[in-house]
């Protein structure tokens, strides 16, 4: 319904923007802006889904876009923001193994490497593989690897969670590019939410506090406690 070249340009713009957000996640020190970057990344994915749904006329992709917006742009960032407030950490200053600059260099190398590698893999079946699948695979896998970079090069637990979420976005991006995979992705998002909740509770409140404080915090979130009166 729209101009093909316009859609193509839009898709490319989104891909590049996603990669930029990923690079941002690697280097930003302020936690709130990290969170916002993640929100932006998720939003971009939702946009991608919308674009594809219009191109292909697939309603499922639209659903995915809505689900992504609800979960990844609204709920999860809100939840993490709440936790951030409570543990009152604002900044993530230290880096493991890689400094921001070098990690961005590494990620560029990664993108090129993945591009070449996947190009090689797909070349034999190139005629049948849709170009969008190839690009999606490259960007998706690169995004996953960059998410891993975030996980191991940032020290604060919250940042690690964001890294993981960013990896997840990579898979989502890859999934969106393969147009017929909707059902699974939907469920996957639900599971990821569960994992995420578990992760963040254990992570953020558990790791830097004593057991008593931890129990206290768990009770505060009333996550695991069923009935208080059972306690001895």
């Amino acid at each position: 319904m729209t101009d093909v070249s316009f859609v193509d340009g839009l898709v490319r713009f989104i891909f590049v923007a996603v990669l930029i957000t990923a690079a941002f996640l690697l280097s930003t020190r302020s936690l709130p802006s990290l969170l916002r970057t993640y929100q932006l990344q998720s939003l971009l994915l939702a946009m991608l889904a919308v674009v594809f749904s219009f191109v292909e006329g697939s309603a499922v992709l639209l659903w995915i876009a809505i689900l992504t917006v609800v979960s990844k742009v609204l709920v999860i960032p809100y939840f993490i923001g709440e936790i951030q407030e409570r543990i009152s950490i604002r900044r993530d200053l230290e880096f493991h193994y890689l400094a921001p600059a070098s990690s961005i260099l590494v990620s560029i190398a990664l993108i090129i490497g993945v591009y070449l590698s996947l190009g090689n893999i797909l070349s034999s079946a190139y005629a049948k593989v849709e170009p969008i699948f190839f690009i999606g695979a490259v960007i998706g896998i690169s995004l996953m690897l960059m998410g891993m970079l975030v996980i191991f090069s940032r020290t604060k637990a919250i940042t690690k969670v964001l890294g993981f979420l960013s990896m997840e976005n990579g898979v989502l991006l890859f999934g969106i590019c393969v147009t017929e995979l909707p059902f699974i992705i939907e469920v996957m998002i639900m599971i990821d939410l569960i994992i995420l909740i578990l992760l963040t509770t254990i992570l953020t409140v558990g790791i830097d506090s004593t057991i008593e404080a931890y129990n206290e915090k768990v009770r505060q979130y009333s996550l695991w406690t069923v009935r208080e009166e059972d306690a001895p």
């Binding site: 593989v129 699948f133 695979a137 998706g140 896998i141 996953m144 990896m167 997840e168 990579g170 898979v171 890859f174 999934g175 393969v178 017929e180 995979l181 699974i184 996957m188």
Partner: peptide, 12 residues
């Protein structure tokens, strides 16, 4: 997560 990428490859 990488496995999931594998799933997508199988699908393709």
């Amino acid at each position: 997560l990488f496995s999931f990428a594998g799933v997508i490859f199988v699908f393709e």
